[in-house]
Simulated scan of single mutants.
Amino acid sequence: MIQLKNVSKIYRTKNGEISAVNDVNLSINKGEIFGIIGYSGAGKSTLIRLLNGLEKPTDGTVEVNGQLISSITGNKLRVARQKISMIFQHFNLLWSRTVADNIAFPLEIAGIAKTERDKKVKELIDLVGLSGRENAYPSQLSGGQKQRVGIARALANNPEVLLCDEATSALDPETTDSILELLLDINKRLGLTIVLITHEMHVIKKICNRVAVMEAGRVVEQGEVLQVFQNPQADITKNFVHQITGSKESQGSIEQILINYPTGRIVKLTFVGQKTEQPVISKLIKQFNVEVNIVHGNISQTTSGPYGTLLIQIDGDAQNVQNALAFLETNEIQTEVIEHA
Rank of each mutant, 00 (worst) to 15 (best):
V321P: 03
N260K: 15
I2D: 06
S178K: 09
L328S: 05
K188C: 11
S253E: 14
T237Q: 06
L26G: 04
P173H: 07
V149T: 06
Q287K: 14
H199F: 12
S253A: 14
E291R: 13
D235M: 09
L196R: 04
T263C: 08
Q243F: 13
G111C: 12
S247H: 11
P279Q: 12
N102S: 08
D185R: 14
I204N: 01
S300I: 08
R265N: 15
V99D: 02
D177A: 15
K5L: 07
P232I: 10
I197E: 10
H199P: 11
G38R: 00
K76G: 13
S40A: 07
Y307R: 00
Q319R: 11
K14R: 09
L26I: 08
V211A: 07
Q3W: 03
Q145N: 02
I236S: 08
G217D: 07
I259W: 13
N320I: 03
G60R: 06
N6L: 03
A170Q: 00
T168C: 01
M86H: 05
T198K: 00
T198A: 04
S253Q: 13
V280P: 00
E339S: 15
G38C: 03
D23V: 08
N29Y: 12
I197G: 10
N25D: 12
K83D: 08
D118N: 08
E332F: 05
K30T: 05
E332D: 05
F271K: 00
L192P: 06
G150F: 08
E134L: 11
V225I: 01
N231I: 11
G111Q: 01
H202M: 07
V7T: 02
